[in-house]
């Protein structure tokens, strides 16, 4: 559980368009890393290349290497399906499966893996995952109701529970709070602090206070202009990025001068 992530000269292309260029980054296990930067600078694209989700876009491809601990997920013969079962993802908009109950949603990953288990084992997994997502008390009386009947914030935590239920090594989150109200956002931020005890967490956020609150290290991405590839400009301790950045672009961005 919990692996380090190392990108070496990672480039992501949509067809001929290079969206992300030459990223080199090392992310420690059991940590929270935030990706910040203006819209369109490739944060989502890079994040999705960490579990090969970008491959679902026709024509999207990667050049470069990406290691989970010592395993290159872009080595020939690696199955993206396996990568994704090790690297979970939480999306911008809560997306519990609408045709499944709360309980079924949490167990969805286990169902995929074909894990045979008794009802009580399943109950344990559900309870553990829901507690891990700070959701258990709120939904314990509605386990068999549709997951899509919960509030937005609860749905997002259900998605996190669904992700942690299969005990991945890494959890990726793409602006997980941007569709939520401030209270739900705080609940998720608390949760992220807990998650890093067990997982490597990478979170894309538009909210700089949020990055400052939840992350230990922050990477700032930027683009030179339209049609130019996004690049990682600076990567450092979060406190350094926000208080004493070494790059002028970073400084302007965190000071709110653009983006």
């Amino acid at each position: 559980m919990s692996k380090s992530i190392t990108a070496e000269d990672l480039n992501v292309y949509y067809g001929d368009f290079r969206a992300v260029a030459d990223v080199n980054i090392e992310i420690a296990p059991r940590s929270v890393t935030a990706f910040i930067g203006p819209s369109g600078c490739g944060k989502t694209t890079f994040l999705r290349s960490l579990n090969r989700m970008h491959e679902e876009v026709p024509g999207a491809r990667v050049k470069g290497d990406l290691y989970l601990d010592d395993d290159n997920i872009y080595a020939p013969g690696v199955d993206p399906v396996t990568v994704r079962s090790m690297v979970g993802m939480v999306f911008q908009r809560p997306n519990p499966f609408p045709t499944m109950s709360v309980r079924e949603n949490v167990l969805a990953g286990h169902k995929l893996n074909g894990t045979r288990m008794s009802k009580s084992e399943a109950d344990d997994i559900v309870e553990k995952a829901l507690r891990g997502a700070n959701l258990f008390n709120e939904v314990k009386d509605r386990m068999d109701r549709p997951g899509s009947g919960l509030s937005g914030g609860q749905q997002q935590r259900l998605c996190i529970a669904r992700t942690v239920a299969v005990e991945p090594d890494v959890i990726l989150m793409d602006e997980p709070c941007s569709a939520l109200d401030p209270i739900s956002t705080l609940a998720i931020e608390d949760l992220i602090a807990d998650l890093k005890e067990d997982y490597t967490v990478v979170i894309v956020t538009h909210n700089m206070q949020q990055a400052a609150r939840v992350s230990e290290k922050t990477a700032f991405f930027n683009i030179a202009g339209v049609g130019e590839p996004g690049k990682m400009v600076e990567y450092d301790q979060t406190s350094v990025i926000f208080n004493n950045p070494s790059n002028e672009q970073t400084e302007r961005y965190v000071a709110g001068k653009f983006g």
Binding site: M53, V81, F91, N95, F97, A108, L112, T163, V166
Partner: peptide, 11 residues
């Protein structure tokens, strides 16, 4: 959205 949710779980 839901298709990606399944794929991100390793489907």
């Amino acid at each position: 959205l839901h298709q990606e949710a399944a794929q991100a779980l390793g489907a």
